[in-house]
Amino acid sequence: MSLATFDLPAPRDGALRRLSDRLVRRARLLTLVLLVPPLLWLGLIYLGSLFVFLGQSIFSIDEFSGTIVREPTITTLLELFRPANYDIVLRTVGISAVVTVLCVVIAFPVAYYAARYAGPRAKAAFYLAVMMPLWSSYLVKVYGWKLLLAKEGAIGWFAGRLGLGGALEAWLALPVVGGPSLSVSYTGMVLVFTYLWLPFMILPVQAALERVPKSLIEAAGDLGASPATLFRTVILPLAMPGVVAGAIFTFSLTLGDYIVPQIIGTSALVLGQAVYMQQGTAGNIPLAAAFSLVPILVMALFLTLAKRTGAFDAL
């Protein structure tokens, strides 16, 4: 039992190895070297341009020449509270809230089933079935709904065949939610948003429900809790962090979107469209920046509240 004794050749001592010496000796230096390239782009260029853009909300626009007046003022920010603009904010927040609630209602049974009843194989299939639409092309999904919602499209045809044509007409005749056809109504818009962001709700809710110990549910059952009580007092509170985490997505994604309302929706503007118009045709960058602050502030508020519920552990 022995090893032949001899000296191994020393490794080649090149410039790289000497550079490695420095990096290994000083772990901080290594972290810094690694961080510099991504930070140069994201920290300097990206964050810088965000500040430059959003910072212009404290400037105003000269009404005659249409040029930006570079003097700090709060007039632009106050413009958000003009009825026409304030309506846009309220409308968008309202749509986001409705979409979020619908997402919770549809996502919960899917997530609950996957978390509590599906075996490992079914769970993998569920996961794929949620991931595929999530990662499918956004525009294609919107396009699919345009096909479905069109007056001559599939939903109208099925409604007619099932004898629900009258009901659909009646719904479209309603104020606010109605319109000439589903594809130019709030109903259609909310439906498409709900569809687009649903996977973002299913996944965190399922993750939260997976963490509810089975023994806890069984214990509550042993203590004589009815299914409804069990759901209300045990399952829902424990799933709440997941719901909040999902709501962060559904709410913020709806708040910032301007493409869906442009394709499927009424002529009344939402926040994203207002930003788009102000920077584009209206050429009012300060007001565009002020409008852009709204979703950011709303989400900051939302996130602060969400942090208290522990939603970030469910992400």
Binding site: A107, P109, V110, Y113, F126, L148, Y195
Partner: peptide, 30 residues
């Protein structure tokens, strides 16, 4: 409800597949 939720996620994609073969040119007729 669970199966319905998943179906909701996939039906629009199926319709896109269907429409790729339609002979209709002027509308989204179904």
């Amino acid at each position: 409800a669970a199966v319905g939720g998943l179906a909701f996620l996939h039906i629009p994609l199926l319709f896109i597949l269907l429409y790729a073969f339609t002979t209709e040119e002027k509308s989204y007729a179904f």
